[in-house]
Nucleic acid binder design. Sequence first.
DNA 1: GCGACAATGGACCCGCAAGTACATTCGGGA
DNA 2: TCCCGAATGTACTTGCGGGTCCATTGTCGC
Lengths: 199, 199
Amino acid sequence: MLTKKGAATRQRIIDAAADEIRDRGVGAATLDDIGRRSGTGKSQLFHYFPEGKEQLLMAVAEWEAGQVIEDQQPYLGQLTSWDAWRQWRDVVVERYRRQGVHCPLGVLITEIGRHTPAAQAVTRQLLEQWQRQVQTGIEHMRENGFISRDVDPVRASAALIAAIQGGVTILMSTGSADHLEAALDLYLEYLGAAAPSYS
Amino acid sequence: MLTKKGAATRQRIIDAAADEIRDRGVGAATLDDIGRRSGTGKSQLFHYFPEGKEQLLMAVAEWEAGQVIEDQQPYLGQLTSWDAWRQWRDVVVERYRRQGVHCPLGVLITEIGRHTPAAQAVTRQLLEQWQRQVQTGIEHMRENGFISRDVDPVRASAALIAAIQGGVTILMSTGSADHLEAALDLYLEYLGAAAPSYS
DNA sequence: GCGACAATGGACCCGCAAGTACATTCGGGA
DNA sequence: TCCCGAATGTACTTGCGGGTCCATTGTCGC
């Protein structure tokens, strides 16, 4: 019920839709454009996503969420030293600075995630997953005495996610990554405050 | 060229548009709905905003930006003691928690501000204005020794704005204000870290 | 009170983009 | 090789929403 070729086409459509949405926003992205961009027609689109735009949007949301995690996973799983933290910080800043407005996470949260409860669920799940990884990192650092016992891993990880999210949103609105950078730096300073081993 | 009645109608239209956008997003808000909600027809809409939706959106953006500042001004102008900071924190959290999804700032940044460069400028200006006030507060606290000399007011205020923004965005996506609260608390803790007079 | 212009109501137009119908080609398993 | 369902192309319908027109009513200055 889905040949190899079919699966490839389906993915091409998702890619094209994601690109189109990043470029022009979910409101301005039309099915015709997506079809054209993916080198297919609208008929395929409805062939693979019979429920239409909604369904395609959901697929894009899930895809983008996966991309975000996949992209950060190698760093997120290894937040066990200050060096690793700093490296992760650099990756985040660099990545978003380069991407600028075309940010999967930002698009997901500010464009797609609002439309339907189902899409919200995807967003929420992504945020939870992300936060949990950070939390684990903080806990690890705390165990090893690099981070003060006064730091609550749950609240601290929540704050970090919010900080990144805010930085990215502002980046998307103003084109400047200064806020993102400042937020991350200050946050790391906070984490390391009571621990002399931080830089 | 604009009678008293006319001005009132114009404002009613802006209000209705703002409401409609908060409720259903800028993409789904139709001129017909806005007209109906404001108790006017589409003709008035074009009477007062001859350039159509774009122009109306700009008016809404400016209006929302003004609301945000006006709302916080009394607190922002007085950030000269830890008590004032905490009070401000409470106001921010409480206000956004109550408003939930219907948040002027969030809507401005994530919905309207993306559409046109002109709207982006409004957003940028709002953020700058906001940040400057926070910055002034930090500087004042620093002068008086409540905040460590190590804290850079510019970066710290940028980080704080990002944190709030991120918290609000997450609130709008998930309905929970936990992130906002955690982020604000953490940054206040950071600010007061080197000063025993905090808390 | 009257004249000019602002304010309002409602019918209308038009284009675009979502969604449909159907005919054709492809591809892979028996 | 042949057949069935999957994959694809094209042409079409339709509703919705931005934008226009014009006729009517209201408001304010003199």
